[in-house]
Design a protein around this nucleic acid. Structure first.
Length: 506
RNA sequence: GCGCCGCUAGCUCAACUGGUAGAGCAACUGACUCUUAAUCAGUAGGUUCGGGGUUCAAGUCCCUGGCGGCGUACCA
């Protein structure tokens, strides 16, 4: 038998009132500890709450004794009986405790010494109450673990902050939250299965990198003690994955965290999960087909016959996705063929649409801003936007026919970007020129400028096959599939400012 | 970054123009042998985010710091 936990206490914290709530629980735990093991090592479960519901007819007919562990969510005493829903990962099953069946000591134990929030295993047979609820008639029960802290209030939702900061509380209190994160896991599994079927090899590349590249973003920096050298947390996998293509691995993909030292809001977290894939011998058309197949498969599995409801819109992934050329979309919105205009002309059009070009914004950046304002919000149904201006895409191959453009597409759904893809630049001389240009920007103080990666260039100089590449923000994909507009809903532990007591004052 | 709003019991929220800080849930005591937001009777529970100021008097007004929400800008 365990020591009776007489010394158990929590560090002083919170108000005296809170201390008393905890103390009441500790006191009951001490008393309970004199009779039972407080922290047993395991429990033999026969069924989950879900399995009980599925197997009810057989179990009832056989009068089978089941053993189900779970957390006590409420206690409803009714004289010499007690009803208590027991919650496990899949849901709840009601347990019925009766003085007559359990005897005085065990009945007192459940009614008086065991708290809401505690874990117990109940053993008994199934029956239906008068009101029709499936219930376990408890013949015995086992104490499994103590909740020394009280559970939150039961019929109002937690604030988003508490849900995010204390995800464990959210998961205890909200079945729907548990379902959402299980769905995220299923989505990831489905994506991996898809790439397996498409004969892509899943690989892992470094998170800690001596140089960062593959995207324009500010990195996190860290330091390696033994090497006494600065390292960066990756902002993209791109350059390493392309080196694998050079090496002869023809189809690779990676699902991994990227880190970007930038603002956070409803759609941005400093660390986020990115899918990148590369296929030798493909151009962006091949990637486009792949992307469409992937999204359709996900929409069939997680939506309704290939249709996803998002923000009140029905998004149809079953039909071939719309395709739209970047410049055509802009021309349609502005009434002007912007290809024919010079920088000043483009800037003038932007001003006419309420966009004031910032200092240092090149023509292509202004086009991008215009696109973001005028076109993106209108792209509700899945739409491929194709053939972007060159300056925006330093790693993409020039368009084979249209001068000034690159072979690139982005997939938009519900007004936000889901995927981004190029015919990958594989000309090492052109790539070196573009890096040099970035280096100049960096020296001028542009923190987002990409660094010249000699290792990568040397790899490309060894010869990189024609290659298609695609990147997809997994968190946004999950947001789309679970119908939420807040990234915190799909990250178990989103980045939060550390909690601190108030400042010291002036 | 910037702007607006918020922070009161463990949780969700009240408290008028400055005038004794309240309710529900949770907790505690009691009643009830099919309850289910159980019910009924009672008890206890507060650093009103921190610091400073104005005032006879501050949850409320002012200054300042912290944290959050929403909007906005950049990034997936």
């Amino acid at each position: 038998m365990n020591p009776p936990a007489d010394g158990a206490e929590l560090p002083a914290e919170g108000s005296a009132a809170f201390q008393r709530l905890v103390e009441a629980r500790l006191e009951k735990m001490r008393e309970l500890g004199r009779a039972v093991e407080l922290y047993p090592y395991s429990y033999e479960r026969t069924h989950t709450s879900e399995q009980l519901r599925a197997a009810e007819p057989e179990l009832t007919a056989a009068g089978a004794v089941v053993r189900v562990p779970g957390r006590i969510m409420t206690k409803r005493g009714a004289g010499k009986t007690l009803f208590a829903p027991i919650q496990d990962e899949w849901g709840r099953i009601q347990a019925y405790f009766k003085l007559d069946t359990l005897g005085e000591e065990r009945f007192q134990r459940i009614t008086r010494l065991i708290d809401i929030g505690d874990w117990i295993g109940v053993e008994g047979t199934l029956f239906r109450t008068r009101t029709g609820e499936l219930t376990i008639q408890v013949t015995d029960f086992t104490f499994l673990a103590k909740a020394v802290r009280p559970l939150p209030e039961k019929y109002h939702d937690l604030s988003l902050e508490l849900k995010s900061r204390r995800r464990h509380l959210d998961l205890v209190m909200n079945q729907e939250s548990r379902e959402r994160f299980k769905k995220r896991s299923a989505i990831l599994a489905e994506v991996r299965a898809f790439f397996g079927d498409e004969e892509f090899l899943e690989v892992e590349t470094p998170v800690l990198q001596p140089l960062y590249g593959g995207a324009t973003a500010r990195p996190f920096t860290t330091h390696h003690n033994a090497l006494d050298t600065r390292l960066y947390l990756r902002i993209a996998d791109e350059l390493y994955l392309k080196r694998l293509i050079v090496g002869g691995l023809e189809r690779v993909f990676e699902i991994a965290k990227d880190f970007r030292n930038e603002g956070m809001d409803r759609t941005h977290n400093p660390e986020f999960t990115m899918l990148e894939c590369y296929a030798a011998w493909w151009d962006y058309h091949g990637m486009l087909d792949l992307t469409e197949r992937l999204l359709r498969r996900l929409a069939r599995r997680f939506g309704n016959d290939g249709v996803l409801t998002y923000g009140g819109h029905d998004l149809d992934f079953e039909r071939p996705f719309a395709r739209l050329r970047f410049m055509d979309a802009l021309a349609e919105r502005t009434g002007v063929d912007l290809m024919t205009l010079d920088d000043a002309g483009v800037a003038a059009i932007a001003r006419r649409h309420g966009i004031e070009p910032r200092k240092g914004m090149g023509r292509d950046k202004i086009l991008d801003a215009l696109f973001g304002d005028l076109v993106e919000p209108t792209l509700v149904q899945p739409t491929f936007v194709m053939d972007h201006p060159k300056e925006l895409s330093p790693l993409a191959k020039a368009h084979r026919r249209a001068p000034g453009l690159v072979e690139r597409f982005e997939l938009f759904c519900a007004g936000f970007e889901v995927a981004n893809s190029f015919s990958e630049l594989n000309d090492p001389f052109e790539q070196r020129r573009r890096f040099e240009a970035q280096k100049t920007l960096a020296e001028a103080g542009d923190e987002e400028a990409q660094q010249l990666d000699e290792e990568f260039l040397q790899a490309m100089e060894l010869g990189m096959p024609p290659t298609g590449g695609m990147g997809m923000g997994i968190d946004r994909l999950v947001m789309l599939l679970v119908d939420t507009n807040n990234i915190r809903d799909v990250l178990l532990f989103p980045a939060m400012r550390p909690e601190r007591s108030g400042g010291e004052g002036p």
